[in-house]
Structures are given as C-alpha cells and as structure tokens.
C-alpha cells in the first residue's frame, strides 16, 4: 500500500497557506544598543503576507541558549520582488539571545505567515500610528501600506530614551509626519500624550488609531477613541506554543457580541479591534 505523498516540497506551489521553510540569512545588524534587524532570503510562498501578521521562528541552539518552543515575531518588512522578509527584534532572553547569534549565510527555520493582520477600513482616511519600543516593528509594514493607499499618515514613536526611538526615517520615507517622545524627555506619559493626540484630532483630522507595544498606550487610545468616536486596531502579544491555533495557549479576553470571550492571539489576532480588547 503506497504511503500518501502528503508533504509537498515548498518549491512546488500548493494550496496550503501556512508554510515551514528554511531561509538563508542575508544580513543581520544591530540597529541600536537593544534592537537587531534580521533580513532573510525567503521563498515566494511565504511572502503572500500582510502587515500585522507574524512568523514563528525556530531559534537556533547555541552554547549559551537552548530554546525549545518557537518564538513569535512580527513581520517588519516583506518584499516579493527581492524575495526578502525581515524582522526587527529586541534581545529579551533565551530565544532572542540565540537568534542574535545567527550569521549571514546561515539558515533559520520559519513557519508562517500566521494570524490576522491590520485592516485599513475605507472610512479610515487619516490614521495615527502610536508605537512603543519594538511595537514599531509591527507597525512599519502598516505605514508602508498606508503610503501605498495614499492615506496621509501621522506617527508617534515612543521609547525609553531618544536614542532608542527607531525607524523614524523609515516612517518619514512613507510620507509620515513623525513625532518622537521618550521617557527621558518626560513627554511620553499619558498625561502629555493625551492633549497631543487630541490636538492632532483637531488639526489633522485623525480618524483612526493603530497601536502596538504598550498596554498603557492602548488603554489611553481606548479612552480618547471613546471620547471622540474614533476606532482603530491594536496588535497584542501573548505567550504561544503552536502559533497556528491548535493549543489554546495564547488566549486573552475580548469583548464580542456584548460579552467577554477568550480568543486566540495567534489565530483571531494578533490584530484586534481597539475597543474590543479587555
């Protein structure tokens, strides 16, 4: 009896939307003291992705770090023509510590693209992006998409200190008006940001919020949004095991149909409606 040939090599186009592929590292650079940018050479099959989606990375085994589970990482950029996929990450512990050791020419096993990405609704004409720390990585491809759709963009980038605010040039290249704030400057707290954002609503006609990287900023945007009738989306994080919806490890409570329900961040998210996050 023949065994069914159920593994289709990734070189052949097949109907499955989630792929496990080995990608060669093109470049891997320090962006500043804390962050690194990893650029992979990726097959076309995984580049049918959208802003807000993520990949699940099998970080390498090194002398110092032996991660076991995969680690979720947002897509920082993808380029179908150049066959490139990149991530921007912060070294946090075992997994990202091991990841940081990857050299150009080495390979990384990735699974994806995963999850549900951002949706720029037709009525959202003047979006405001609010990114904290590495949340910026998640919002970068969204900024690029806003530029492509001709939506005038405003971005507030927040970090602990001014030298940790990243990608402002990238955002400007997408035509965004960029405002940077930092804890060290004393202008990144909710008390300072609220009047700033309410000012932007008046002067720039902001009609949608997109955010990632800080629960505090998300709560602030929920409050401002409720006050001004402004909706939006948020990308959230949760500890994961499978990353594709099988294990229920990554649930969080959300408001749906008038009640609280547990939804899987890896499947129903990681992008959710701003006002449904509890």
């Amino acid at each position: 009896m023949p065994a069914s040939p159920c593994v289709v090599p990734d070189s052949i186009p097949h109907p499955y939307s989630i792929h496990e592929v080995e990608c060669r590292v093109k470049t891997h650079d320090r962006v500043n003291g804390e962050y690194r940018r990893l650029v992979l050479s990726a097959p076309r099959s995984v580049l049918d992705c959208e802003p807000g989606q993520f990949f699940h990375l099998l970080c390498p085994q090194t002398e110092g770090f032996q991660p076991y589970l995969r680690r979720p990482m947002s897509i920082y950029s993808y380029d179908r023509i150049r066959g490139e996929l990149s991530f921007l990450y912060k070294v946090a512990g075992t997994g990202t510590g091991a990841l940081a050791s990857l050299q150009p020419g080495e390979h990384l096993n990735i699974v994806g693209p995963l999850g549900r990405g951002f949706e720029i609704r037709r009525e959202w004409r003047r979006p405001l992006l609010v990114a904290r720390g590495v949340g910026l990585a998640t919002l970068a491809p969204l900024a690029s998409e806003c530029a492509r759709l001709g939506r005038p963009l405003t971005a507030i980038c927040s970090a602990r200190s001014p030298d940790l605010v990243m990608s402002t040039d990238l955002f400007r290249s997408f035509g965004a008006e960029v405002i940077t704030v930092a804890d060290a400057e004393g202008n990144s707290d909710v008390g300072s940001l609220t009047p700033l954002i309410e000012g932007l609503i008046r002067t720039r006609g902001i009609d949608a919020f997109f955010t990632c990287g800080s629960t505090r900023l998300m709560r602030m945007l929920q409050v401002i949004g409720s006050r001004h009738g402004i909706g939006g989306q948020v990308a959230v994080e949760q500890h994961m095991a499978c990353g594709i919806g099988m294990c229920q490890a990554c649930v969080r409570p959300f408001l749906r149909d008038g009640g609280a329900v547990n939804l899987r961040v890896c499947r129903e998210g990681p992008v959710f409606d701003l006002h449904e996050v509890l």
């Binding site: 032996q66 991660p67 589970l69 095991a241 294990c247 490890a249």
Partner: peptide, 16 residues
C-alpha cells in the same frame, strides 16, 4: 480553561 501563562518551556520540553 486555566489562567495564562498556560505554557512555558523547560530544558528540551514544555509544561502546559
């Protein structure tokens, strides 16, 4: 189900 975190890894294995 149970409160989060619902999973963690230990040497070459996981807990759920």
């Amino acid at each position: 189900g149970n409160p989060v975190p619902r999973v963690c890894e230990v040497n070459g294995a996981m807990l759920n």
